[in-house]
Design a protein around this nucleic acid. Sequence first.
DNA 1: TAGATTGTTAATCGATTAACAATC
DNA 2: TAGATTGTTAATCGATTAACAATC
Lengths: 233, 233
Amino acid sequence: MSTSKLASLPTIKRLPSYLHIVEAAEREGKKFISGTIIADELGLEPIQVRKDLAVTGIVGKPRIGFPVDELIQAINSFLQWDIETPAVIVGAGHLGTALMGYVEFPKHGLNIRAAFDVDERKIGTTVNQTAVYSIDRMPKIIRDLGVKLAILTVPNAYAQDVADDLIDAGITAIWNFTNMKLKVPDHVIVQKEDLSSGYAVLSVRAREISTDRSRNDATTSQESSPKSRRVRA
Amino acid sequence: MSTSKLASLPTIKRLPSYLHIVEAAEREGKKFISGTIIADELGLEPIQVRKDLAVTGIVGKPRIGFPVDELIQAINSFLQWDIETPAVIVGAGHLGTALMGYVEFPKHGLNIRAAFDVDERKIGTTVNQTAVYSIDRMPKIIRDLGVKLAILTVPNAYAQDVADDLIDAGITAIWNFTNMKLKVPDHVIVQKEDLSSGYAVLSVRAREISTDRSRNDATTSQESSPKSRRVRA
DNA sequence: TAGATTGTTAATCGATTAACAATC
DNA sequence: TAGATTGTTAATCGATTAACAATC
């Protein structure tokens, strides 16, 4: 805190991948890691990694790199991943269940405290240590737990109605896995996760490959490769 | 085809959301839709929508907008969503199962022909119309089906080994839902889907809200809002 | 010490936005 | 017709990359 740096959206999105690399280094017992190493690992430019890491306030040592433990802390602190964030999940279908079992989330402070569903067969059960309640009990439970974040994995058709109920119950942040653009008041933030846009990129890149098999400039690209990201139709 | 326009990655990622709006308009019986309407619906700038749509080669009518049916075709054609793409899925866990049941995929030409898993209880069953086979049979089945695209939803620890096997079997595109950066030869494309980066953005935006409740410039933001996307730490 | 790496300032590149003539 | 919208060219904005002095 206090450092007050500015971070672009692309930078924020890259930070978790840096964290992943640095944590692997920590497990290997490394005390320092350079931006060059991180960049190599991810196929990025070292200068980009340095610039990105700068937003966390981390200070490195020339010639040596960044102290691993401090860097982990700095990224986690910047992302607010060093504090517990209680959450609920609405819709205990396969996607919801997958998210309840996603082992990375607890590491990022994300704690799913309850799940809600309309399916009588699921209500009362426990999925991945998370109890599933009737959606009727949602407002009261959210209020009682004081949860502010909801993960939305209901069918599209119910998304807006459920969102409205969530907001009424005090939710101020919705992680939206449906395909609906939600209408919410100004004080509520919605983060939309869109599988289709990922598939769109894959589709276009696949065509690019099969279309012009000429200039294959050795890009072991993972959507992250720098330079020439444009694509010919 | 033939139009040969250039498209940036951000543009490609936005196209599916335009398609969604335009298809809704079609269901309502609309014959034309303007970029302004689409922009309003998504909270984007009209000029951005027009610029994005231009890459598909669509031609609109001043004062009227774009012909709905042609626009749908143009976007689908640009994304290669008008042709069938057979695929296999490796890892029939909850995430894999969720993807097998994702109704949008068939609409985008994505056809999951087979699933593979190591779990004896799943092998031989059918999940959402998709047969689950032993992973031992993977190479032969992929070759027999002539599938080029694989969706990877195995535990992180197996990701690289499975990817290697997939590539040996002739797979040239991997939609990677694991957290591993895969090492693949040049002719293989990997599209990585990263939930953590989405959560990173959500976390930072949530802090922004709770930190400075001063300048709340009425951004019903859905991660897409233009202007001032930067964030103070 | 020599040299790799940091961190900062400047340059470049690319995406978004603005302006506006053409037009249905 | 009048005027909203397209499509193109130019301007702006912001993110990436380059350059380089500082330094461990």
